[in-house]
Amino acid sequence: MATTIRLFADQRLLCGEGPAWDAGNGRLYWTDCGGEAIYAKGIADDAPKLVLSGYHAASLALHESGGLVFGGRDGFFQWKEGEVPRLICDRSDHMEVNDINDIIADPEGRVFGGQEAFREDEAYDTGYLFRIDPDGSCSVVEEGLHLSNGLGFSSSCDRFYLVDSIPRMIYAYDYDRATGAISNRKPFIRLDKDDGLPDGMTVDQDGFIWVAKWFGSGISRYDPDGKLERTIDLSAAQTSSLTFGGPDFRDIFVTSAAQYWETPLAPTGHDFSFPRGGSVYHIVQDIAGKPEYKAKI
């Protein structure tokens, strides 16, 4: 099957992020975390719909009871269309829970979310990874992160993946589904500087890892041993996140960002002019993903 790439939403979002496919209503949700907005659109819809504004949402997960959980600058929230978002958590172990970047629900309905601690122009504190259990309790499960990004689980649910963008590293942990514990962090995939920064990620039904590459103009697929299997190039330098969706989960939706960030972290000689991104892309291809787990908080 040939790979087809088209625009799903022709936008200029400052930082498109957090795509989440809701199979129940056949819609994709995504955020503009730079513009404090959440959008939704079905495949056959003409244009995206703004469904929530005024809240900083960097990432999304579906909730078992309907609606979404989102993480952002002010913590974790639960939200259904037509309602005011409900704060789930903004404190843990006597510390603030803030600057949340990517989040993910696990098979038992817990939600993991990591911090964006990196500040290029100043010293930055240690970034944490938080876990919220279904009873609403929040705990720190990892520290020492720079810019926590994509999260995922292996097909057998014995491994947990975490992207830390600044060192261009994807880590693998042992994961205990019964308790939600992660342990034994190991380097799994490290991108070269010329590849860009690893950002959002997802895992397909064969256990292969798909990663969006900021400054890398596309997405890449790695096998369960961390070997590069393929790359799909896009006409946006700042691809930020991705998810599977569509009627058989063979469609890939990729967000991107229009914001200007000139940094020495970029590949040598990188062109910071347009096209940087800002739109959402729709890729139809022959590899099947799987539904993401839903939160039960």
Results as ranks from 00 to 15, higher is better:
D99R: 00
D93Q: 15
F77T: 14
G113W: 15
L68S: 08
G71Q: 08
S154G: 07
S65M: 13
F118D: 01
D90E: 15
M95C: 03
L145W: 00
D121T: 15
N149F: 14
E64H: 07
H146Q: 05
I132P: 04
E143A: 10
F76H: 03
L129T: 01
I100L: 14
L87E: 07
L62Y: 00
W79H: 10
C157S: 04
V97C: 04
A61P: 04
E81C: 13
E83M: 02
V141C: 07
A123D: 10
P107Q: 02
G152F: 01
G72T: 10
P85G: 12
A61H: 00
L147Q: 02
S155R: 03
G71V: 13
R86V: 15
R91F: 02
Y124W: 06
K80W: 13
T126E: 13
N149W: 04
F153V: 10
L145S: 02
L129P: 04
Y124Q: 02
G67Y: 15
F70V: 09
G113H: 15
E64A: 07
G152Q: 04
R73P: 13
N98Y: 04
N149T: 12
D135L: 05
E81M: 11
L87F: 07
G109V: 03
I132A: 07
S137A: 00
D102R: 05
I100N: 09
F118C: 01
D93R: 09
S154P: 05
S65H: 12
E143F: 02
G72D: 07
